[in-house]
Design a protein around this nucleic acid. Structure first.
Length: 790
DNA sequence: TGATGCTGCGTTTTT
DNA sequence: CGCAGCATCA
């Protein structure tokens, strides 16, 4: 960018010439930011006037178009930053767009007050005009828990049997109405009749009244009340219609009816509405998104320009062909044909496994193979349909010592209060943990500020002792002033006391005592901010999760492993996530396990939504495939554990929808599985799978039995997943050693330490694989690089 | 108020 | 099978 920031200084009102010809000449039709756009992208950026729908297929440069378009509007002087409305769905997307626009155009982020999520912009509008919708400007926003609590009160007040009519169901129903833009007076009575013997509507109205009394709004109302504001106050609406000379919407396929209505009201002003989306990536129908919004765009906004971005810059030929062929089976779509100029690359692979354990083993092996070939783990993702599928994968990776992170999983351990609490416990367990000590030395505040900590640091460094130790000697001197000295002395005394009780009382109790006596709990109890209650709840949850471990040490080991795993984004690790949370991401290699009918497509979606549901599942498959840049690897298992029982499954119907020319059916690398009977047709496999008498089945059974003695996931059904383990696991019987791999530096009898399993003695050495009898966790097979000499 | 036992349920998730 | 949420009891 030649002179970044230049465009932004525009303070004068927008150039009046509607065609912007003069302005265009000024900015130059070949402005630098336009360079490198392909013709369709460029058209999408430059078609500023009137409604525009940009159908942006996966990997076609959607975000680039959106941000460049904003830059273009600004550089032409068609609008000031504050006159552009740019809406996203998530805060993350909003943040990214701000960053990208900022980078492209200079630091103008503050200059775009109307770039944000639908909800954030709704809040902004409502606070400005709160009184017009019966709220005060400082109204509070209820989270889901608050909502449920409020609904319970309403149900209580109406004397409704909450057994039969749970608050959750009412909440879901009201949420659904709000998604569709229906306030109480617009809901059809017939529809409301199904709840609580016809009282559904009354409850909805009562709930809305309660919100007003509490001066509160729920998420749905942030949209719904804005719509009402606009409808009932023509002047206000006109004001914003005039202001928003240009409107941009990201992920339009995810909009619900309320959002559509909201946009339509505003777009009746300048009419320069640009919606970007991909009907083939609409995967949130179940929470109110209307694919129909995007399908109907041309009807809703007459004279609309539709621009298709079909050149894909992400995936190689085979992958793109497979994804395109698959999604072509959908009927409710506008239709796009993705193309790439990239090479054909590797075919999409489909691998059948005997069961989900073998599936996990195969994936593990393929990842190790990729790793040996020099591929980064960061460039590998496993995308599952449902989160329960993650367990087996995680278990397998723990065994292999393969670093992984779960995306979208619980970010529990990253929360401040949890980190604080853990820091206390770490100080108890290991007095030399300086990082932990530093974290909590003045939390809660006890007058040990930066100055004191500095003295402490100096003291520790000169004496080469940990902070805690330095503090101990320091309080005996005159170096600190009386106040901090006393505070520090008290703190050390407290830690000594806690440490002293460590072996006398259960570790959960100890944790409670520590959090209590340190004043940490009290700190949050006194805190009257909105999230204090939640934080206390999290602390309770932390203590509860400790119960599953034998002692404090074991718990802290587990936590450190978890934190390591998803801690640094810079660490090289395989990503595991759901297909839903993978939308918008891309990886060199994508593993897609669980392609079985009932799981994917999911039976529930099929049951509830029929063909529309199937199409949404197919879009999900399409999203999954198009995440891959160079390798897409599909797996299915013939047997999967579901609700604790092994179920025989049928390969996903989506497999039959993949084009044979772009797919390679491979044999499981998980070892035993199909025993050379590699299937070439999935339906043939189906009959094979359901026949429990075939040699293959018996063989696999035999292998399973044999194997279960070798792997830590024993036939007793126990899981090595740490947190999920109730009882320490012991595997009986002899472990079979096989020799592979390079010689290990360890010998039988060596004492070792493992991050997850703690201390143990080596029972056998097999190449780089050790079998260790852990003190707590029983015998495990582990890779030698994951233990250290104790 | 807190612990214990029972019942029912089991997909995806953001604001 | 495992867990969450609720109800019941102490």
């Amino acid at each position: 960018m030649a002179e970044p920031g230049k465009f932004l200084r525009i303070e004068a009102p927008p150039a009046p010439a509607p065609g912007g010809i003069a302005a265009r000449a000024r900015a130059g039709a070949d402005a630098p930011y336009l360079a490198g756009l392909n013709p369709e992208q460029r058209l999408a950026v430059e078609s500023l006037d009137g409604p525009v729908l940009v159908l942006a297929g996966a990997g076609t440069g959607k975000t680039r178009v959106l941000t460049t378009r904003i830059a273009h509007i600004l550089s032409l002087g068609r609008a000031r930053p504050s006159d552009i409305l740019a809406v996203t769905f998530t805060n993350k997307a909003a943040r990214e767009m701000k960053e990208r626009v900022g980078r492209m155009v200079g630091q103008m982020v503050e200059g775009m007050p109307w770039l944000g999520t639908f909800h954030a912009i709704g809040v902004k509008l409502l606070r400005r005009h709160a009184e017009l919708v019966g709220l005060k400007p400082d109204f509070t926003i209820l989270d889901v828990d608050d909502q449920i609590r409020l609904m319970k009160q309403v149900l209580e007040a109406e004397n409704i049997d909450q057994q039969r009519w749970p608050a959750r169901a009412l909440a879901a129903m009201i949420d659904n109405w709000k998604n569709r833009g229906l306030p109480p007076d617009k809901v059809s009575p017939g529809e409301a009749a199904v709840f609580a013997g016809g009282r559904g509507l009354k409850l909805y109205a009562a709930y809305q009244e309660r919100l007003k009394v509490l001066n509160a709004s729920d998420f749905g109302d942030l949209l719904l009340e804005t719509i009402r504001l606009f409808r009932e106050n023509a002047e206000v609406l006109r004001q914003y219609q005039q202001r928003f000379r240009f409107m941009l919407v990201d992920e339009y396929q995810d909009t619900n009816v309320a959002q559509y209505l909201w946009l339509r009201l505003l777009a009746q002003g300048a009419k320069n509405l640009c919606c970007v989306g991909d009907d083939d990536q609409s995967i949130y129908g179940w929470r109110g998104a209307e694919v129909d919004n995007i399908l109907r765009f041309e009807k809703d906004f007459p004279g609309a320009t539709v621009i298709r971005l079909e050149r894909n810059y992400r995936s190689t030929g085979h992958i793109l062909a497979a994804a395109s062929h698959l999604i072509a089976h959908n009927e409710g779509r506008l239709g796009k044909t993705l193309r790439t100029e990239d090479e054909l690359g590797e075919k999409v692979t489909v691998t059948g496994a005997w069961d989900s354990e073998e599936e996990a083993r195969s994936i593990g092996e393929e990842i190790e193979e990729l790793q040996r070939a020099g591929h980064k783990l960061n460039e590998i993702a496993i995308l599952v349909r449902a989160s329960f599928q993650m367990r087996e994968l995680e278990d397998r990776f723990v065994t292999l010592g393969l670093p992984y992170r779960v995306i979208g999983g619980p970010r529990f351990y990253e929360r401040a209060e949890i980190r604080d609490a853990l820091a206390y416990l770490r100080c108890v367990a290991s007095p030399a943990d300086d990082l932990a000590f530093e974290r909590i030395v003045n939390v809660p505040r006890r007058g040990l500020g930066d100055a004191t900590v500095q003295v402490l640091h100096d003291h520790a460094r000169t004496r080469r002792v940990p902070l805690m130790e330095a503090a101990r000697t320091l309080v005996a001197t005159e170096e600190l002033k009386a106040r901090p000295r006393t505070a520090l002395r008290d703190l050390i005394a407290a830690f000594d006391r806690w440490r002293g009780r460590r072996d006398q009382i259960p570790h959960t109790e100890l944790a409670e005592i520590v959090l209590d006596e340190s004043g940490y709990t009290e700190m949050w109890q006194k805190d009257r901010s909105a999230d204090a209650a939640g934080r206390l709840e999290n602390l309770k949850e932390l203590v509860r999760s400790m119960e599953e471990f034998e002692n404090l040490q074991g718990f802290l080991e587990h936590v450190s492993l978890i934190m390591d795993a998803d801690g640094g984004a810079d660490a090289d690790a395989v990503s595991i996530m759901t297909l839903h949370s993978a939308k918008g991401l891309e990886f060199d290699t994508v593993f897609l396990p669980g392609w079985e009918d009932g799981l994917f497509p999911h039976q529930r979606t099929l049951d509830d939504q029929g063909r529309a549901g199937l199409e949404e599942e197919r879009r999900l498959a399409h999203v999954g495939l198009t995440r891959a840049r160079r390798r897409a690897k599909i797996f299915f298992a013939t047997n999967r554990r579901l609700h604790g029982l092994w179920q025989t499954t049928v390969p996903s119907r989506f497999l039959d929808e993949l084009p044979e020319a772009h797919v390679e059916v491979t044999e499981s690398k998980g070892g035993f599985g199909w025993g050379g009977l590699a299937p070439s047709r999935f339906d043939a496999m189906e009959s094979f799978a359901s026949n429990y008498e075939t040699p293959g089945w018996q063989r696999a059974q035999a292998n399973r039995a044999r194997r279960s003695g070798m792997d830590e996931a024993g036939a007793n059904g126990s899981r090595p997943g740490g947190a999920r383990r109730r009882q320490p696991l012991t595997i009986e019987g002899e472990l079979v050693a096989r020799s592979t791999g390079p010689a290990s530096p360890y010998a039988v009898g060596d004492r070792v330490f493992h991050q997850k399993f703690g201390y143990g003695d080596i029972v056998s050495v097999d190449g780089n694989k050790l079998i260790v009898a852990f003190d707590r966790a029983g015998e495990k097979r582990v890779v030698d690089s994951f233990v250290e000499r104790a």
